[in-house]
Design a protein around this nucleic acid. Structure first.
Length: 201
DNA sequence: GCGACGATGGGCT
DNA sequence: GCCCATCGTCGCA
């Protein structure tokens, strides 16, 4: 099976908006404690770009929570929100420029049993179609913050996946930025794949 | 199928 | 003390 080596750091070094768009269809892989591959194809992602972007956690300056975003590309930024949810981001661009791609959905593929055990749902389409849902299904929590996605023996990484046609990619404003001022609130930095690409698998 | 809303706790001013 | 880069459930159709 082709594409079984992790994407290298160059895939995360590019402009954040490009990373968010061009990584749709790539495979996110987590090696579980049972040494099982849990994986799925990225269906939705958003870009958060630097301290100027008032929607980006980095806009308040470097803190203990968001420090990973200032580091090198290709690391995981995992944070906790709403009192109960974990979110997975990939750090992008060069060291010192705080930016990341929020992974908002994956289409589940490998390790379905283990993922469904963590997150019992009736339909696969509801297993990991949300930023907190995919973290729950994969078992991602704060201990994954700051892990290298590109290092040797990485337990969390990204592989080549399925090809996504340009005309099945949707573009729109980012989700959940209720009190963020313009123009940041409306930046078209959310990208998602037509559900029809996966649902009849 | 869809809109409203409560849960729940860390981070920041 | 307020604000969330959310989700599940409930009521209603």
């Amino acid at each position: 099976m082709p594409g079984n080596s992790p994407l290298d750091r160059n895939f995360f070094l590019q402009p954040t908006v490009s990373v968010a768009r061009d990584r749709l269809g790539k495979r996110v892989v987590l090696r579980s404690e049972n040494n099982q591959r849990l994986s799925g194809f990225i269906t939705e992602a958003e870009a958060y770009v630097g301290t100027e972007d008032l929607a980006c956690h980095a806009h308040v300056g470097k803190t203990q929570r968001n420090a990973v975003m200032w580091g090198p590309a290709g690391y995981a930024y995992v944070y906790f929100t709403y009192g109960m949810h974990w979110m997975l981001n990939f750090v992008t661009e060069k060291e010192g420029f705080p930016s990341a791609v929020l992974i908002r959905g994956i289409w589940p593929d490998e390790g379905l049993d283990e993922m469904l055990h963590r997150r019992p749902v009736a339909s696969l389409s509801n297993l990991s179609n949300g930023p907190a849902k995919l973290c729950q299904a994969l078992g991602i929590n704060g201990r994954w913050n700051g892990v290298d996605l590109c290092g040797k023996g990485a337990k969390l990484f990204v592989e080549e996946g399925v090809n996504i046609r340009m005309d099945s990619i949707n573009i729109g404003p980012r989700v959940g930025l209720n009190n963020v001022p313009e123009p940041w609130k409306s930046k078209p930095w959310r990208f998602w794949v037509d559900p029809s690409e996966f649902e009849q698998g």
